[in-house]
Structure formats: C-alpha cells, structure tokens
Design a protein around this nucleic acid. Structure first.
Lengths: 210, 210
DNA sequence: GACAACATACCAGGTAGTCGGTATGGAAAT
DNA sequence: ATTTCCATACCGACTACCTGGTATGTTGTC
C-alpha cells in the first residue's frame, strides 16, 4: 500500500461506502449512491477505484484501521487490570449503542454475509479484519485468564470469538427490531458470563504479581 | 392465507428461494436464479407471485413454518425436564452444523440485514419469524427458570434472544471462515452459560414437583 | 370452453464501467 | 520570470448489459 495519505475525495468515498453499505447492504448499494453520499462524481470514483469491488476492499481495510484506532484510544483501554479492560470493552460497546442502527453496526459483518460465496476477496478481507480485531482483544483476555483462571479449559481465542459473535448477533436483532434494546440485554448477559469466567477479583489477588 | 395446499411449482420456488438467498444474499439473487434452481420458468414464477418481494415474504413465512416443524419434531423436544429441553436445543443446533454453510444458516437473519432500511415489509416478516421462534423456546426457558432460578433477575425473554443472537453471530463467522468451528465453540460457551443460569440439577430437585 | 398453470419473447429502466475532455499545480526548459 | 509540459484529479455523457416485470400464446383439465 502507498504511504502517501489518500486524497480527500478518496477518503470521502471510503467513508460514504461505510455508511451506505451499512444502511442498504452491499449488493443494493450502487456506485451512484456512494458518489452522491460522498458528494463527488462518478468520474472521480472510477479515477480512484478500478471497480466497485476494489472500493469495497479498500473500504474494509479503511474500516479496520479506523475502528482499531477508535478502540485503542477509548478510555477503557487504559485500565490497569486486563480483566477490567475486557469488561470495559463490553461496556464500551454497550455505550456506543446510543445511536442510529447503521452507525453502530459492523461493516464487515454486513459485507461478509452478502459476499461470502460470490466475492471471495471481500470475504477474506472481512475475515481478516474481524480476526485481527479479535486478536487485539485476545491479549487482554489471555492476560486476565492467566491471572484469574489460569487452569480453565477455555481458550482466550474462543472467548474472543464468542464476544464478537454476541455482538454480531446483536446487530442483526437491532436491525430486525430497529433499536438496540436486545443488544443491550445481550451485552449484560455476556458481561455476566465473562465475569463468571474471570472470577470476581478480590483486593488480594488484584495485588498479586503482574 | 389460502387453506388449499400450494402447487408443486410454488413450493419448489419457495424452497429454491430459501437456498439461493442464503447462498448469494437477497439483493444479488435474481428471479432467474431462483427459477433455474427450482427448475421452473419465469412465467411460472410470476404466475404464482406478483413481485419478487411477494415471493420473499412468502418464503419467510414458509421458512418459519418448516423450521418450527423441524424443531417441534426434534428428539430433544421430548425431554421430560424443561432444562434438558433448553440445553437440548443448543445441542441440537450444534449437531446441525455438520453441513455446508448455506444449509445451516438462517434465512431470516440473512434477509433482515439486507432489507431492514429498504424493504420494511420483509424486515417485519423476519422480525416476526425470529420472535415467534424465540417465543416457543421461551416456554422451556421460563419453565426451567421457575424450577431452578425462580428468583433470578434475568428474564426468559432476554435469554431467548441471547441464545438466538449467539446463533446469528455464529452464522456470520461461519460465513467469514467458511466452516463451523467458531459456531461450535460458541455453542459450548453458550451451553456453559445456560447451565450456570439454570444451576446444575441434583437428583432431589429433579424429583421436585412439576 | 373456461380456467389455471405454465412457457417464451420482449421491453423499459437501471447500473457498472468507459471515454473523451477540462482544470490545476508543479517541475523543467529557456 | 515566463513559458512549456505533463501527471494527477476530476467531470459527465454515453454504452452495453442485465433484470424485473409484461404480453401473448399454449397446454391440460374439469
């Protein structure tokens, strides 16, 4: 990838794609839709991207970068104890639900469902983006596991995927019900489960080594 | 709805729609795709359905009916204790994962994600279908709750939605990863959580009244 | 012969991608 | 300093194609 920062129109198009795809889905979104939302012309679109699929791949990468930056800078991420960071992640996801549905749902989850058999490259990009997000989360889960449940039979990886799956499923119900009530309730169930996996810490084991 | 049982071609079309939608998604599926899969002509299609959207609504209803029948006749459903039926449901869902991805994923979850802003009627049909499936499941959850966790603060409804959300999220990862490993792991996490909500029964409280 | 259940050719609208062209800004030549 | 040159960014009309839906015809059956 080039290291020069992309032009304004290109970024506008990528951001527009994020929004329109999450609202109308991949296949129902036309190039003109994206151009209109971005406020640029079709000529500009095809200057920056060879095809609609190429834009989609770029948009998936753009999404991964911006979400990773968002979570990295979120306050929960600075908690001292890994367990607090894991639970903080869940709380943070719950806090975001105060918006319109297309604004808190996941681009990659939306895309992959429509393209997994028809557009292998997009499917792979979504898989990669979601997996790398989970990999980051896994670091905290693993650290918390070492501290509170070192001998448990579950893996931090499986818990990472479980968390993401609950989120993705919650998004589907948010779309079906046009609201985030189910998502919110799901996240409290999830939190409860995570608390039980990482047994409630006491002052003493909080003070324990690293 | 008519009480006469629908013609063979109509059923073929509804079944074909189920399969093709789950494979290619709603918007990417053409009427010709469905006709070809069903082995009927376009003329037949538009004889039975006024529009593509009407077929989709019928397909959603058809899906709800056939899945409800499937679960009602599944062996787990005949367990004596409601707790066993709830856990049996999860195990049954896990057992189904031995197939190709489009065969075990949920039509309604797929449809709603693509249509929730653009096709209100389809969105509503999906919501209705998923909610009524949960309502059936809820009966067992509620009965199990009365027995093992009568005073717990969670509602059987929220647990029903949580179970479905884990499933829907699992389907997304099945699509992203082209396999059901994550789904399977998710279902064991889910089972563990449900077991903890409905505390492990002993011989004595199994024998307890009704 | 009337009606349902098809079959097939066709059409109108929409869409991805193309193509010739313009604007702009910076480097190079003079 | 001024002119020339060129690459990048952008514009919008146009095209070839696809797709939902229609119109019209055919077959079988009660």
């Amino acid at each position: 990838m080039s290291n020069a920062l992309p032009h304004e129109s290109k970024i506008k198009l990528l951001d527009a794609a994020q929004n329109v795809f999450r609202t109308k889905g991949y296949a129902a979104t036309t190039v003109d839709d994206i151009c209109q939302f971005a406020g640029v012309t079709k000529g500009s679109f095809f200057h920056h991207f060879k095809t609609r699929e190429e834009l989609t791949l770029d948009a998936a990468a753009h999404w991964s970068n911006s979400t990773e930056a968002l979570f990295a800078s979120a306050p929960y991420h600075r908690a001292d104890y890994p367990r607090d960071r894991v639970l903080g992640y869940v709380d943070f996801r719950a806090a975001i639900l105060d918006r319109e549905v297309p604004e808190f749902t996941c681009l990659l989850g939306t895309l992959v469902q429509e393209t997994y058999t028809t557009h292998p490259a997009i499917r792979a990009a979504c898989d990669k983006g979601m997996s790398s997000h989970i990999a980051v989360l896994m670091r905290d889960i693993e650290a918390a596991k070492q501290r509170y449940a070192a001998n448990a039979s579950w893996t931090s990886e499986s818990v990472g995927y479980f968390i993401q799956s609950v989120l993705q499923g919650s998004f589907i119900f948010a779309k079906a019900k046009q609201g985030s009530d189910v998502a919110r309730a799901n996240l409290s169930h999830l939190r409860l489960y995570l608390e039980s996996l990482l047994h409630q810490p006491t002052k003493s084991n909080r003070k324990a080594k690293s």
